[in-house]
């Protein structure tokens, strides 16, 4: 297993170690372990059936692991009902009553956390405002769009002001606008200091919102780290293609002098550059192109992504 980006154990919100769970003869999860710090968004990536949801449910206390340990905010979580008060769980499917209003649903869930009347009213108002559903708070859920229900589903997971938020594929079946809103909200959770576990099989979502990613396949965590760390372990590089007019050989030569560029070669109407980090050296490359006297007409930066990492590690495409 790739193991990168290790941190000290002190101060972690979530520490899982050696988690294992079987259903009959089928091993759903085997030896999964990771840690999440406050404000960190940890992506758990894997195809359907890889063991993501089982891992999440074990962390939430919905499933009891066969082996392993879970510590949440320094407290042993397995079999400890009180620890669940520190966790906000947003299940994969919208788990709310369709024949109750948004406010009634949130009030019901808040009462499960034993919030007193005043706190409950404050938290419900806060959650509705956060999800921009205040004006529709009295409407029954069956009158809501799919995106609005998803947003409320997330809001319900925040009522108890958790230390750890678990989001299980929160954008499945959501329109692009709502997806964008949800992802922005998740990023804001991280900035607010909330530790977030985020499962998805949308690679671009993981790349956008997650600080670190764990790749799970066949119940095992097979790699972990930041996107860049995982890509670096893969040994692949970024490439920059500059389409330009003028002396392209001269342009390639100038680009080779830019620190961080491994190679640069002229082709028919473009120059191909290979580098460790395409985004960071792009301004220097464009400056060099300007000095060479060539007119750059288009730029295309290609980075090896998590999809490539996942494919490399598992031999399986992430998305069906």
């Amino acid at each position: 297993m790739l193991q990168v980006g290790r941190q000290e154990s002190s101060g972690y919100v979530l520490e899982c170690e050696g988690l294992a769970k079987s259903f009959g003869d089928r091993r759903a999860v085997e030896g999964v372990g990771f840690r999440i710090a406050p404000g960190e968004i940890y992506g758990l990536l894997g195809p359907n059936g890889a063991g993501k949801t089982t891992t999440m449910k074990m962390i939430c206390g919905l499933l009891r692991p066969d082996r392993g340990s879970i510590t949440i905010a320094g407290r042993q979580a397995i079999g400890n009902i009180d620890v669940r008060g520190l966790v906000g769980y947003v299940p994969q499917d919208v788990a709310l009553y369709p024949d109750l209003s948004a406010r009634e649903n949130l009030q019901f869930i808040g009462r499960l956390y034993r919030l007193d009347r005043r706190t409950l009213a404050e938290r419900v108002a806060e959650a509705l405002a956060l999800t921009e559903l205040t004006e529709r708070a009295g409407d029954r859920l069956d009158a809501y769009s799919g995106g609005m229900r998803r947003r409320l589903n997330i809001a319900a997971g925040l009522l108890n002001h958790p230390r750890l938020l678990i989001l299980d594929e929160p954008t499945v079946g959501v329109d692009p606008q709502s997806r964008h809103a949800i992802l922005e909200r998740v990023q804001a959770f991280g900035r607010d200091g909330l530790a977030v576990v985020y499962t998805t099989h949308y690679m671009e979502e993981a790349e956008r919102v997650c600080d670190r990613v764990g790749i799970i396949d066949h119940g095992r965590l097979i790699a972990e780290g930041t996107r860049r760390e995982l890509v670096a372990e893969l040994g692949e590089h970024d490439s920059i293609e500059l389409e330009a007019s003028g002396n392209l050989d001269r342009l390639a030569e100038v680009c080779r002098s830019v620190p961080g560029v491994s190679t640069a070669a002229a082709a028919d109407h473009s120059v191909q550059i290979v580098t460790e980090d395409g985004r960071s050296i792009l301004p220097a490359v464009l400056e060099a192109a300007d000095r060479s006297g060539c007119a750059v007409t288009s730029v295309d930066v290609t980075e090896p992504d998590l999809e490539a990492v996942f494919l490399h590690l598992t031999g399986t495409a992430l998305r069906e």
Binding site: L62, R84, A95, I109
Partner: peptide, 8 residues
């Protein structure tokens, strides 16, 4: 599931 994820 939702209820079980709360301290209930």
């Amino acid at each position: 599931e939702r209820m079980s994820s709360a301290p209930v």
